[in-house]
Design a protein around this nucleic acid. Structure first.
Lengths: 169, 169
DNA sequence: AGCGTCTTTCATTTTTTACTGAAACAATAA
DNA sequence: TTATTGTTTCAGTAAAAAATGAAAGACGCT
C-alpha cells in the first residue's frame, strides 16, 4: 500500500536528518533506518534502489554500519550475493551506539583533556590556574559520564534504568 | 608563558574537533572552549584575534552560543563594547546542553516517530506489522530516554547521578 | 544633525564533506 | 580458461556547510 511506503520513506528521511544533527552521515543513518524496518535482509542493490544512491556510497556506508556492529551481513547458501540485516532490538542498538561513541570519541577526548591539564602543572599565573581548574573539572566530569554510560550499556534491560532513576529528584 | 598558550590552543582545537563529531559547528565549539578557560569576559574582537576568524563568523556563533544559554553577554558600564563570558560550572553546562538538545532534536524526533507509527495503524500486511512494531519500540525507548534526561538535567548536582547508578549492575 | 564606535546582515567565496561511476579485483561456474 | 556475477576502491565531482568582508544599521555623544 502507498500509505505504508509513504510512512517508511518519511521514517527513513527523518532518521537520516536526525543522524546529521548528531554527527552521523545522513546516508549511513538512512540505510540503518531502512534495515531497521525491513524484515528479509536486503542486498546492496536493494538498498541502492530504495534510497536512490550509488553502489559506492551504499557499499561504503554498509561497511561502516557493519563496523559499528549495528548491521550484520548474511550469506544465504547457494547464493553469492551478500545481504544485510540490522540489529532490531532497540536497547541493544542503544548499547552498541554508546559503546562505540565512547570508544571513538569520549575516551580520546578525555585523554586530550588530561594531557592539556598536565601541560600547565607547574605554572602559577592566575590564567594558568583558571585553565587548570577548568580542564580538571571537565576531565572529571567526563570520566564520571564515561563510567555511568559503561554501566548503563552493560546492564541487560532498558527497564533497569528508569527504575534506578526513581531515586532521582 | 608559551607553555600555557600551547595548552590552551590545543584545548580549543580539540574541543572544536569534538563539537564537529557531535554535530556542532567547529567554530562555535572553539569559541565556547575559549570562553570556558578565560576569566575576564572577551569582546568580539578578542575572539576574532584569538581564533583568527572574521567578524561575521565570530558574531554569528556568539549569538548562537547565547541562544543556547551557554554564553552570557556582559556590558561594562561606561563602555559600549559587548563582552562575553561562558557558564563555567560543568554540571550546569551539561544540563543546558541536555535541555537544548532535547528540545531541538529529541522531542521533534519523537513526534515524527509517533506520526509514522500512526500512519500505518489499520494495515494488516506483515511489512506493516514490522514497521509498526519497530517505530513503536523506538518511540517508547526515546520517550523513556527523554524522561530520564529530564530528571537528570533537573537534579541539582552531578554527584547524585553516580550515586543513583550504584543500583545498577 | 553629523560623527565615531560598535553590531548585524547577507551575497559571495571557500572549505569540507559526501557521492558517483567506472575500473580493478575476487570468486565461482561453465 | 574465460565468462559471469558480485565486491571494492578511489579519482573526480557535486552538494552542503561554514566563513568572509563589506555594506547597512543602531546607538550615543557633541
Amino acid at each position: 500500500l502507498a500509505q505504508l511506503t509513504a510512512a517508511r520513506d518519511e521514517f527513513v528521511a527523518q532518521w537520516g536528518a536526525m543522524g546529521s544533527s548528531w554527527g552521523i552521515n545522513r546516508t549511513m543513518a538512512q540505510i540503518h533506518a531502512l534495515l531497521i524496518i525491513t524484515t528479509p535482509p536486503l542486498s546492496t542493490d536493494d538498498i541502492m534502489e530504495e534510497l536512490k544512491i550509488s553502489r559506492g556510497n551504499a557499499h561504503m556506508n554498509l561497511r561502516e554500519l557493519v563496523g559499528w556492529g549495528l548491521v550484520r551481513s548474511v550469506i544465504r547458501k547457494g547464493e553469492r550475493k551478500e545481504y544485510f540485516e540490522a540489529e532490531k532490538d532497540v536497547w541493544k542498538m542503544f548499547c552498541i551506539i554508546v559503546r562505540e561513541r565512547k570508544r571513538r570519541e569520549i575516551r580520546p577526548a578525555i585523554n586530550v583533556l588530561k594531557s592539556c591539564r598536565e601541560r600547565v602543572d607547574g605554572l602559577k599565573s592566575p590564567e594558568a590556574k583558571v585553565f587548570a581548574a577548568q580542564t580538571q573539572a571537565l576531565s572529571e566530569f567526563m570520566e564520571m559520564a564515561d563510567g555511568v554510560l559503561s554501566k548503563i550499556a552493560r546492564s541487560e534491560q532498558s527497564t533497569v534504568v528508569p527504575w534506578a532513576l526513581k531515586f532521582l529528584t
